[in-house]
Design a protein around this nucleic acid. Structure first.
Lengths: 144, 144
DNA sequence: TTGCATTCCGTACCTGGGTACGGGTTTACC
DNA sequence: GGTAAACCCGTACCCAGGTACGGAATGCAA
């Protein structure tokens, strides 16, 4: 009996993360405490692997673990309460901002790829414009 | 004489970063070593402020300082060599991936905001789908 | 049931990205 | 020319996010 549930090693391998990371995420509240065998070994539901991929993806985008936790929490329960809706809206704004910034970077990179500066042979680019200047917002909002 | 150039305090304040951070970035190679006064005090060109904004923006997107340095280096010299072009292209791909992921998150958030689950009063959402599942890529490429 | 791989837990350690400290110069203003 | 504010440098510390360690207990297979 009780063959259901993946063990830590399996989950870790499938998700491509360290075993310790699972325990760490559990402590951090990103992973719910899984069921346990009689002897106390964890038995994870298979979706855990997907969840870990989600977490890692969100992290790559610059979300902190706390933010990821919040994001997941918001997403978990559909039909959010007013409070949750507000958080979702806030996250949405953040995400939009990130997308905007990324597009600016993207534009600069494409420009660079396209640029020939009139001629590769003659141009020493004495006064090349600031790279990514279109991205930099002088009125940067302070964190907090 | 030598009133040209901003001092560390000015740059730091305008860019909204700590003075120590300037020295740190200099050590890391993100900021070029600025000119110095006779007495050894740094005199920064005004574009430094913009550059710092760029760095901070890129960081918010999940780029490491090393990556930012690389990005800047790529962007600095227009009409890149073949090698530089390759790096720019690689970055471009990364950026596109990030944008794709962010759009997935964005979509989920909007869904959440739009969702009423038929009725807020009756739906207990017994089997709500995985949040952000569209973002998780099971074939996640291992780092390195 | 013996035995080896896994897992358990707590704690210590590591890297990245800064920030703070402290004692000594340099500037800038009166 | 005196003095406070700003700056210098090296070094030590801090937080986030993991990762490693090590000794005991469990799981599974022959």
């Amino acid at each position: 009996m009780a063959a259901h549930g993946l063990r830590t090693g399996e989950v870790a391998e499938r998700a491509g993360v360290n075993v310790e990371t699972l325990r760490y995420y559990e402590r951090r509240g990103l992973l719910a405490e899984p069921a346990r065998s009689i002897g106390g070994h964890r038995a994870y539901p298979p979706e855990t692997v997907t969840l870990l991929a989600v977490i890692k993806a969100a992290q790559r985008l610059g979300f902190t673990l706390d933010e990821v936790a919040e994001l997941l929490d918001t997403g978990r329960r559909r039909h959010p309460t007013a409070d949750l809706r507000a958080r979702a809206r806030a996250k949405l704004a953040e995400v939009d901002e990130k997308i905007t910034d990324l597009r600016a970077i993207r534009g600069s990179l494409e420009e660079i790829l396209a640029a020939e500066c009139d001629s590769l042979t003659h141009c020493t680019c004495p006064a090349c414009p600031m790279p990514f200047a279109d991205l930099a917002d002088p009125a940067a909002s302070p964190p907090g």
